[in-house]
Nucleic acid binder design. Structure first.
Lengths: 245, 245
DNA sequence: GGGGAGAGATGCCGC
DNA sequence: GCGGCATTTCTCCCC
């Protein structure tokens, strides 16, 4: 197929708001929040219904270049190359993709109104602690949900068996230094707003790095090893038996 | 095309290590670091040379589901549906995609050894400050690069016009509370390791949030408004003139 | 829209 | 591999 024919195909698909996928040899320049240049190579390019653009190399998880929703697209042919320009006025970003060869092209009207359900998040973890506070330590009692929101983004606020106000910060994976400084900030915030000098801090995570544990101890805080729950596990097990998974 | 034919196509493409792209109506279950379920809808699915899998909905920037490199794939047909299972032993993750209809399918051997060049990063910002330290303030002198690495990840370490040791933390966008706590951590680290009580902290960023500025002042630190440099801008402008961009 | 924090974050570099 | 941290982070939620 000729360059001009691909130009028509792309323009039609863009006009019809289809999801476009094509593979090509191209080079890419981007300018906006940063600047980037990517020399000639084979990539997969996707333009979605909402004008999001993604450029993927043949390996790796993340797109090598992209444009956000709200972008506009223009095309032109030059020296047997197809030049795709994208502009996002709001983000003040531009991209130019110079295409020397198309490997394949497809566009399709796609329908998907589904929202993903995920379990095992940090929120699930803090809900689990609210429901089973003894996981933190014996005699730990969470305070009301309203108290929680009142002081911002504290995962769990409660009192220990001695009645000392206690801030619990959850991490779904290994807690690092930043988790300790975050906890420290909350504890200090509570001390100031409540006008009290004794507030405890507990970090709840499956693991903790050595340095983080050291800093935690320096500040008199505690670590409790807790894993995030996976409520869908049961569903999966049931399905597994039905499907022979 | 029949379900069994797609099964053969996919198996062949996987065996040849091609980059596979297809669109289909499907539902997806995932289990690993978390659990997720996504009900029937149209999606774009990509399996890369390195066995990375990405599932994209017709809108949005990020993949709704994915498997990392090192995943294996098996296929089977059932009730006129194609079931793609993926497993990643190292990550202890599994995914099952049930496909009820294929919209299109393509696979291709792609070649791309290019590495992207990006400018305007935080590293560029700290390099700029090293080269033009007066941007921070009059009389500011950075210390040697070796001193910098000695204390880990401090962006710029220097002395002010009064000879006071000064830690500079750079942020390429708006500095938030976490940037202040990060700076504070570095200042405290330097005070302990050097055995001195007076160390200054400067946050260099284009903007700062109100709360962050307040906390910064509470700790006696300073804010300097600096934007990250974009070295490729000149290149872009030159190209623009040549290309009529 | 600003601000704050999680994410199945990812990716990079250093030890 | 662990650890610390930037990212054109993205995304969500709340004010």
């Amino acid at each position: 197929m000729k360059t001009e024919e691909y130009q028509i195909l792309l323009n039609d698909a863009l006009a019809r708001n289809e999801t476009i996928v094509f593979s090509c040899k191209c080079r890419i320049r981007y300018s906006g929040r940063a600047e980037s240049f990517l020399d000639w190579g084979d990539r997969i390019i996707m333009i979605k219904n909402d004008s999001t653009l993604l450029v993927h190399q043949p390996t790796g998880n993340t797109p090598i270049n992209y444009m956000k929703t709200g972008s506009s697209y223009t095309l032109r042919c030059e020296h047997d190359q197809l030049i795709l320009k994208s502009q996002n006025i709001i983000q003040k970003e531009t991209m130019e993709i110079t295409i020397s060869k198309m490997h394949f092209f497809n566009s399709h009207k796609l329908e998907d109104g589904q929202v993903i359900r995920v379990s095992g998040t940090e929120e699930d973890m803090s809900n689990m602690i609210y429901n089973s506070p003894e996981m933190i330590e014996e005699g730990f009692k969470p305070v009301s949900q309203e108290e929680q929101t009142k002081y911002g983004f504290i995962d769990v606020l409660g009192v220990d068996k001695n009645g000392i106000l206690t801030v619990v910060e959850c991490k779904r994976y290994r807690a690092e230094l930043s988790a300790v400084t975050q906890l420290r900030r909350y504890v200090e915030k509570i001390m100031v707003s409540k006008g009290i000098t004794k507030v405890r801090g507990i970090l709840a995570a499956p693991k903790i790095t050595n340095n983080a544990e050291k800093m935690l101890k320096d500040w008199g805080f505690n670590f409790v090893s807790i894993k995030p729950p996976k409520y869908l596990e049961e569903y999966d097990k049931k399905q597994a038996r039905l499907d022979g998974f």
